[in-house]
């Protein structure tokens, strides 16, 4: 991992993009087991249809985990102070997710220099699925 230097960063700087392979039903089954989120709507098509959905769909938290990888590929996790997202649209089976991040603010808080990142996930059609923010701390 390249060491990220606070002073050399500017608002508008972008993180290296992370793109996943298309989300498969196996991915959803693995995430169901690994996460402990056993809501059948993500893995059982009969249940999903009964609930009025056309198909199973991805856990929002799977995409939030992808976006978390984008951030921790860039800075060590112990510099992560806050991380939040809004699940803007449903991520579907077959979607290929691109995670992007951009520096939007440099500031000081709790005695350290901090960066705010704007984060998004998009599918292969450029539809935004998650919008979020992370705050990164640089202890002096």
């Amino acid at each position: 991992m390249t060491v990220i230097n606070y002073d050399s960063l500017n608002v508008g700087d972008r993180l290296p993009v992370l793109t996943t392979r298309p989300i498969s039903r196996l991915d959803l089954a693995l995430y169901c087991g690994a996460s402990g989120d056993h809501n059948p709507i993500h893995v059982d098509i009969d249940f999903a249809k009964g609930a009025g959905m056309p198909d199973v769909f991805a856990h929002g938290m799977l995409s939030m985990a992808f976006l978390g990888r984008l951030v921790t590929n860039w800075v060590p996790q112990h510099q992560l102070r806050e991380y939040g997202v809004r699940f803007v649209a449903i991520t579907h089976v077959g979607d290929e997710i691109t995670c992007e991040g951009e520096v939007v603010e440099k500031f000081e808080q709790d005695g350290e220099q901090r960066l705010k990142l704007a984060l998004t996930t998009k599918n292969q059609h450029d539809d935004i699925k998650l919008k979020g923010e992370a705050v990164i701390g640089f202890p002096g």
């Binding site: 402990g36 056993h38 249940f47 009025g52 992560l80 806050e82 991380y83 939040g84 997202v85």
Partner: peptide, 24 residues
Amino acid sequence: PAALREMLNIDIGRVLHGEQQFIY
């Protein structure tokens, strides 16, 4: 894990995750 849904009488088939935030 269903304690909140049961307390509020919410059907699991009708829920979506809207937002999630962590402060570390």
